[in-house]
Design a protein around this nucleic acid. Structure first.
Lengths: 139, 139
DNA sequence: TCTTTCATTAGACAGAGTCTAAGATAGGAT
DNA sequence: ATCCTATCTTAGACTCTGTCTAATGAAAGA
């Protein structure tokens, strides 16, 4: 039983086989998949699942606050079930792989008052970029 | 004469009326526009300019390193002519307004070696989010 | 001015995501 | 266990951003 499934149940969210497959896939992953990757993998367990269901389900998980939506390449969104801890992201410029990382300092502390331009600033997230071990080796 | 136009000339970049309109619009802006916003505004000065030209021109400016491409909402890219100073971005969750900000510390320093997972990390950018003065007042 | 090379154009195309309307089903009520 | 109804799923059309193509047009050096 996945922890994400348990968290979703607490919202009185109707559990269907399709939703369960998607939730368990997200929860077990240490990388963050795109909607299409999730569709592709879900099809291995449930060949008739539709694209609309995958998108609907992911959007509802985001609306419930149990999954975060990430966007780094301007193309496809990725989904991150780790909403509890505050963390940042490390992205490979070669293959797009995305993983969670933790920093030693809160980036909000680095933004002085006179750089806030009257905004009420509530959040800061860091995007680190580079090349993963596989892409470094591949040149 | 816009500073961006001057910088682009130095690359032996053929200057056309279309490119000049786009460059001057970018350079004078206090906020960062999407390609469609740039197309719309360019049409006011040059009604026959095509969408392909706007996209080609923006992509070339990015390739020349004189304009940076930003993506925050996962929908449309925005273009930032301030590539000289290294800076970060502050975005209003209400209206999407995007502006440049400067931090006191380099965020790369906050990522310990054991959080790099074998990656060669070359870059770090911070996205600050909140509400701009107008959107705070509007509730 | 002539020529070559590069830029512009309209419109077709592509990828990611949303919407719609019809049929199917989870889970409470009986 | 069965029924009922709200809601979920589905296929496919649609939208929105952005890219590509092939023909026409224009910048800039000789």
């Amino acid at each position: 039983m996945s922890d994400l499934v348990a968290r979703l149940r607490r919202h009185q969210w109707r559990m269907t086989p399709q939703r369960r497959v998607i939730a368990e896939m997200l929860d077990g992953a240490h990388v963050h998949y795109t909607a299409d990757e999730i569709l592709e993998r879900a099809c291995e367990h449930m060949p008739e699942i539709s694209r609309a269901t995958v998108y609907n389900t992911l959007n509802e998980m985001v609306a419930l606050g149990e999954v975060a939506e990430l966007n780094f390449d301007g193309r496809s969104k990725r989904y991150d079930p780790n909403v509890d801890h505050d963390h940042h992201h490390l992205i490979c410029d070669g293959c797009g792989t995305t993983r969670d990382v933790h920093t030693t300092a809160d980036p909000l502390d680095g933004l002085p008052g006179d750089e806030r331009h009257g905004f009420t600033v509530t959040e800061a997230s860091i995007t680190f970029r580079g090349r993963c071990p596989d892409c470094v080796d591949a040149g």
